[in-house]
Design a protein around this nucleic acid. Structure first.
Lengths: 229, 229
DNA sequence: CTATTCCATGTGGTCGGACCACATCAAGTA
DNA sequence: TACTTGATGTGGTCCGACCACATGGAATAG
């Protein structure tokens, strides 16, 4: 077993044993290296992996926000992984879109009308009505769909949703250039968003699921991506 | 931007540009370091991340299987990420089980009866009938469910299924100890597997989805995990 | 006494060089 | 021909040094 994997195992055990909590800090690289009797190089390689996994964040300097602190951003890892494998062309974009439809349909069908995430979603729609530019509109769109998925209360599904979105973010931005009339599309998307949110708020999960599926598939179809779902 | 991120970006661009294909090899660490005018340390940190993401595999020695070769194992990355975040107690096991039910239900409902994965699934069931030990039984069970999900033909869903399974693998193994009568449970699981596969083979996706959901939820409920789905 | 400046300290980030273990392959040898 | 041996090239590990950065306290000017 390689040395950095040993370090990784030690740190993971600290997590499992509850000795390392969210917001906590890992020992300094030099200290950890001495403690585990390995080189700082190996410690650093382990930390790089944890960082890529969205488990820690390394910060230079001193005081607050310095050192290597424990965070919880699973979507970071999932997104990076999906993005890389998409780059190698071994994750078809169509499959990603299909998965997104699957997860998001489930999420809205399970969303609880009293969830505070829905209030945030409503505010985001107001922002999209205020006539932002294309880039700003897409940013709000991302946050809207994320808020919707959070209303279902399953953090795994939310994280996967966010990562799927991140994986094809650059791709989706390109798609807008394929659209014949962005203003018309934006108007349609806004109306569909309202309809989805209304269905969720009135507790009609089935209708919300159908609407969101049609919403996502319609967009990618219009932009020229064949979503088999 | 940190140096290893620069290296990471360069390699990712090679992927995007199609200059680095599956089975291909990265330049040697020392060569890449000189080419990009960075230290070997930074190159290695970038490779560590790619390795964690299931994009490359580093092999020592010489000749075939040596050097850093491009692979495509997205489930590795997703599984490691979910496992780590589960260790930090920020991904509830119940959410993972619920997500698994969601994905697998969809997969069997969409499975194509002519898929070769279903033939493999049938063989695995024969193996489980041959009376293996608990550990072997669980290993076959993992592969059976994975084969089922592959029959839907969506690699993203399959990868996520595999990673969810991996994330709670150790956890699930512990659960068997909670079961009052393993032989009885194993017998029930075998019968349920047959029923699920039959439903898929006869094209009754809806029935298969219901059966697989009940199958998974029933198991975890019996083992003492509250699966809200 | 107060406010400012400055430096000691500790953090991660980067670098170059050295050596090791390993696997292959070619040259040399029996 | 068959075996042995060494050269070569790969990743794995370690060390020591230096840098950039952020903080906080000490020294200093007012």
């Amino acid at each position: 077993m390689r040395t950095h994997e040993l370090v990784l195992g030690w740190i993971e055990r600290q997590f499992s044993d509850g000795k390392l909590l969210l917001g906590g800090r890992l020992p300094a690289e030099r200290a950890l290296a001495e403690q585990l009797q390995v080189s700082r190089t190996s410690v650093r390689e382990a930390i790089r992996i944890l960082e890529a996994m969205g488990v820690v964040r390394a910060g230079v300097g001193s005081g607050k926000d310095a050192g290597t602190v424990v965070i919880a951003e699973p979507a970071t890892a999932l997104g990076a992984a999906l993005r890389l494998h998409t780059a190698t062309r071994h994750l078809p974009v169509a499959d990603i879109v299909e998965t997104r439809v699957l997860l998001e349909s489930w999420a809205v069908s399970r969303a609880r009308p009293e969830s505070p995430a829905l209030a945030e979603a409503a505010e985001l729609l107001d922002g999209m009505d205020a006539g932002p530019g294309t880039e700003e509109f897409l940013a709000l769109d991302v946050r809207f769909h994320l808020a919707l998925s959070e209303a279902a209360g399953n953090v795994v599904v939310s994280a996967m949703m966010a990562s799927l979105r991140e994986a094809i973010e650059g791709y989706a931005a390109e798609l807008t250039k394929n659209l014949p009339d962005w203003d018309a599309t934006a108007g349609r998307l806004r109306a569909e968003h309202r309809a989805i949110l209304d269905a969720v708020n009135t507790g009609d999960g089935g209708k919300a699921a159908r609407l969101v599926a049609a919403h996502i598939e319609g967009y990618y179809r219009e932009a020229g991506v064949a979503a088999s779902g």
